[in-house]
């Protein structure tokens, strides 16, 4: 794989199980070294997409290139050699120790100098002291870390992480986030499936939202801009006497609504132009201004907006 080549190219990929469509006509690219978030509600086809790109199941139609190799059943072994997949449940052999679990997978990947690779992987997930423990005796968070160590063993080009922080406490989740950041710095491409939108927003360079079909792909900031009009949030001490008269007459303000007593959300074409005009207008009517700020939409707002659109469309 050359350095310019994307790590992952997905082109009109579809998977059906009989009459049921798991995902349809999905196309996107992931650059090398990118942390790519894959979001969607339950049953949206995220896990099936990961399984398809991980060569566990064959697509019904469409093409993909994974780590520079065309996704075909003949290329399965070669692709799997270059990637690692961590499913939502780490799937460890509970009667084996942490080291024995890793030895097994090192053997399957043909890892050279397995002993030192295992030590490095355990060190990366801060588990060196538990190397001799049976996996059955570890907490869920520690098992998740063993799963991550296993994913690191083969030095993969792409890591598919399916809900890596599911069920973890905040401290353990933060450690996983730190590890993802370390991997990003090393140039590993990460395909992150998650329900945690704050996690996606914090970690991912770009995100895709899937709901059987791909609803959108982009940087979180771009998606916010695409989906939501610019807005200003105005707060005053006490409600305004005539907000309708005031805001409709203010240049640059396209519309307004009251959120609460003394809180107003104004739709504006350009916040940088509208904000001084609004301030002047408020001062002009003698309002006591508490704050004027640009409205911030989270990735969660984007996600809910798109998923709600789908729910509404299905109702119709």
């Amino acid at each position: 794989m050359t350095t310019e080549q994307p790590a992952l190219v997905v082109d009109h990929l579809t998977k059906r199980f009989g009459d049921r469509t798991a995902f349809s006509d999905v196309s996107f690219e992931v650059a090398q070294g990118e942390v790519f978030g894959f979001l969607g509600p339950n049953g949206a086809g995220k896990t099936t997409t990961v399984r398809t790109l991980g060569t566990l199941i064959a697509p019904t139609s469409g093409t993909a290139t994974v780590a520079g190799i065309p996704l075909t059943s003949a290329n399965g072994v070669e692709i799997r050699q270059r990637i690692s997949v961590m499913p939502e449940s780490p799937g460890l052999y509970l009667r084996l120790t942490v080291t024995e679990n890793l030895e097994f997978f090192a053997g399957l990947y043909g890892v050279r100098e397995a002993g030192s690779r295992i030590s490095e992987a355990l060190e990366a997930v801060n588990l060196s002291k538990r190397a001799g423990d049976l996996c059955g005796g570890l907490s869920k968070g520690l098992r998740q870390r063993v799963g991550l160590a296993r994913a690191l063993l083969s030095d993969p080009v792409i890591m598919f992480l399916d809900e890596p922080t599911s069920g973890l406490d905040p401290v353990a989740a933060r450690e996983v986030h730190d590890l993802i950041n370390v991997l990003r710095q090393k140039g590993v491409t990460i395909f992150l499936t998650t329900h945690r939108l704050d996690e996606a927003e914090r970690l991912c360079d770009r995100v895709a939202i899937l709901n059987t079909t791909l609803r959108t792909v982009g940087r979180p900031s771009e998606l916010r801009q695409q989906l939501f009009t610019n807005a200003l949030v105005v707060k005053t001490i006490g409600p305004l006497h005539d907000p309708a008269g005031l805001f409709t007459a203010t240049p640059g303000v396209l519309g307004w609504r009251s959120d609460d007593a003394g809180a107003y959300v104004l739709s504006v074409a350009d916040p940088r132009v509208a904000a001084p005009e609004v301030a002047r207008a408020l001062v002009g009517v003698g309002a006591d201004i508490l704050s004027i700020s640009e409205a911030q939409h989270s990735l969660e707002d984007v996600y809910l907006e798109l998923v709600d659109e789908d729910v509404e469309a299905r109702k119709r």
């Binding site: 799997r80 499913p87 449940s89 780490p90 799937g91 509970l94 399957l108 296993r150």
Partner: peptide, 14 residues
């Protein structure tokens, strides 16, 4: 039953 089949199948094993 242990949930270990899928991780095993994601490796290069034929």
């Amino acid at each position: 039953e242990q949930g270990t089949l899928e991780p095993l199948l994601t490796t290069p094993i034929r």
